[in-house]
């Protein structure tokens, strides 16, 4: 089967999952105890006022009609209206999403840059000192409460020695770059705005590392076990016997074959990073989806919470689909099926 047909088939298989996601989120949003109309109007509302709003919000319709309306809105990108910001949730999502995406991409970049080499070194020096150190660090990383690590890093790098900013995406005296993607680093690169690039990169360091600490641990562990398996195989011995240098054998031969399980885990790791953003963003006042969701929770702004949930779930399965496709690119032996 051709690559295009494979991709189309996977996209079609995604539909029932998407439908399931909406059913689940609709179900959750209908379990809110109490009356949303009463919640919106506050304690001074009259029974008539509540009844009118209930009618207006469609709360008196049968449940399948409500779901139908909910879906009708969703497919048009209508996530309802935020009860706190009084704006369409879709507008809010559009505004906050690039910040989260930028932070997640940056932390994934750090994860790959640090986690994979550490895993390789660990596997290559199995049971020796470097392996012991790396394994211990990876274990600690996986067990690390990222929101705490963030606070401690702030305490040290911002409050004690003051070399890094305490939060936000860019210094208040630097104007953000012209919006193209909404990601400050990319936009300032595209527009050649070096001052904004420097400022936004500096602001990414602490939240990026905080978010990456956990995923680096995950990827290191996976790379190690995957590489251990590969390094035992005959062709690696052959490669060494033919006089291949250690680096060439490790990164040229072994990594390519050890990459598959690592890639699978990357999808999960990405989901983990997205989920973790809820906590990390609220530590670093990072104006993204996570912080938006946490604010929404505190103001009982339910449409906003659901909007974030759905968006992140859709993003998560999309990334996993892309990884699935990459899988076939990396390993041509796999048939498209």
């Amino acid at each position: 089967m051709g690559a295009i047909r494979f991709i189309v088939k996977r996209l079609i298989l995604m539909l029932p999952i998407l439908l399931g996601i909406t059913i689940l989120t609709f179900f959750i949003s209908n379990t809110i105890p109490g009356d949303p109309a009463r919640l919106i109007l506050g304690p001074k509302a009259t029974p008539e006022g509540i009844e009118r709003l209930r009618e207006e919000m469609g709360l008196n319709d049968p449940i399948y009609v409500q779901y139908g309306k909910y879906m009708y809105g969703l497919v048009q990108g209508d996530f309802g209206k935020s009860t706190y910001s009084q704006q369409a949730v879709s507008e809010d999502l559009k505004r906050y999403f690039p910040a989260t995406f930028e932070l997640t991409l940056f932390s994934m970049f750090l994860t790959v840059l640090i986690g994979i080499p550490f895993g390789i070194i660990s596997a290559n020096k199995k049971d020796k000192i470097p392996d012991q150190i790396t394994r211990f660090m990876a274990l600690t990383g996986v067990a690390m409460p990222a929101f705490w690590l963030g606070i401690i890093l702030l305490l040290f790098f911002y409050l004690k020695i003051g070399i890094l900013p305490g939060g936000g995406r860019i210094d208040s005296w630097v104007s953000p770059p012209e919006a193209i993607t909404g990601m400050y680093t990319i936009d300032s690169l595209l527009t050649g705005n070096w001052e904004a690039l420097k400022s936004s990169l500096i602001h990414l360091i602490l939240p990026g590392f905080t978010q990456a600490a956990v995923t680096i641990g995950m990827i290191t562990r996976m790379t190690r076990s995957s590489m251990l398996e590969v390094l035992r195989s005959d062709y690696i011995r052959t490669a060494y016997a033919k006089g291949g240098s250690e680096n060439r054998v490790l990164y040229g031969h072994a990594l390519q074959n050890g990459m598959m399980p690592i890639l699978t885990l990357m999808g999960m790791t990405f989901g983990h990073a997205l989920g973790g953003s809820v906590l990390v963003e609220s530590v670093f006042s990072w104006p993204g989806l996570g912080r938006y969701a946490v604010n929404a929770i505190n103001y009982l702004d339910f449409p906003a919470v659901m909007g974030v949930t759905i968006l992140i779930a859709v993003l998560f399965i999309t990334v996993n689909l892309i990884i699935d496709i990459l899988y076939h690119v990396i390993d041509p032996r796999l048939k498209y099926e």
Binding site: G20, L274, G275, A313, F316
Partner: peptide
């Protein structure tokens, strides 16, 4: 199994967050 697929298509903490938010803190 399709039901589990749906649950696993959310990052865990996000789904838990929205359920807990709906139920009340």
């Amino acid at each position: 199994m399709r039901t589990t697929d749906i649950f696993l298509s959310f990052p865990g903490i996000i789904l838990a967050m929205s359920i807990a938010a709906a139920l009340g803190p």
